[in-house]
Design a protein around this nucleic acid. Structure first.
Lengths: 147, 147
DNA sequence: TCAATATATTAGAATAATTCTAAAAAGGCT
DNA sequence: AGCCTTTTTAGAATTATTCTAATATATTGA
């Protein structure tokens, strides 16, 4: 049946996810959701996502990339990870987890939550509550083989 | 003797710290070191430090603030803490420790290292080594009294 | 102490990521 | 279809930071 319609199911899935958070499934948002959510967990910057979209012939302005990343974040589809003062990173993995950050390449990588635990959390300052706990293990490259 | 020379000892201390890392103890660097290192541990942004300097009548350009913060960081007198994409924070506490970040006020606060521990660090990706481990507990304000 | 040399400071221009603006386009409802 | 709302967008604006190249200050050695 309708053998020439590609990825119907997938598109429906993206559309419903977008609708579910109260946003209109526009061409741009569907395309970006495709890039973000169809290939496992990802870490993107605005510029990189824009580049990818261009490469695939999706016409989206950079302003829309920023709008969409922020709307998705506000909607709980993405989370922002602060690791670099120059660039914002967005993570599609919403489970509780932490990150490796390769300082030389700018690559950001998930650490599965199970592997790392925090012990002995200190008492919080009066009148505040935890919004999130972010652990970043910064890595520097090392030559592969000893000199 | 020389009763009217104020803080001789302190100034000497700052001067020797600056010299010790191979920098010339200029008027600006001495003044900034004074603000940074004479009142316990601090967290500053370039803009805030510049504001403080102005308030005390120290004439320093913002460019010099940036130069100095980076030189002090490279020299191991300061450490940069990445908690905000919009602003760089510098911490005068060089011991191993982590941070509370008050998202509403932008206040950054040390967590003494002893209180918080990390268990079960994951294996590192091949060919990398740890440059630092940064833990940030982000806090949101709460009304002081329950409604 | 003073000149010669190296290093610092600075104003202002330049840069780069991000946000804003307001006008045109697309989505959704009846 | 037609109307109203939400989106997209180009380009201007903003903001933190860096760069530039000209001037000033620190250091060294005679």
């Amino acid at each position: 049946m309708t053998p020439s319609v590609p990825n119907r199911e997938t598109t429906d899935y993206l559309e419903s996810r977008i609708r579910a958070v109260g946003l209109r499934p526009t061409r741009q948002r569907l395309a970006l959701a495709g890039l973000l959510f169809q290939a496992g967990h990802r870490h993107v910057t605005a510029e990189k996502l824009h580049g990818e979209a261009m490469k695939r012939g999706i016409r989206v302005s950079l302003a829309t990339i920023y709008n969409t990343l922020h709307q998705f974040t506000a909607a709980g589809l993405l989370r922002e990870v602060v690791v670099d003062t120059d660039r914002s990173y967005f993570d599609t993995n919403m489970e509780r987890h932490h990150h490796f950050f390769h300082e030389d390449t700018g690559l950001l990588e998930d650490i599965p939550s199970s592997e790392l635990e925090l012990k002995n959390l200190p008492p919080l300052p009066e009148g505040s509550e935890i919004s999130s706990i972010d652990v970043v293990i910064r890595l520097s490259g090392t030559r592969k083989l000893p000199l």
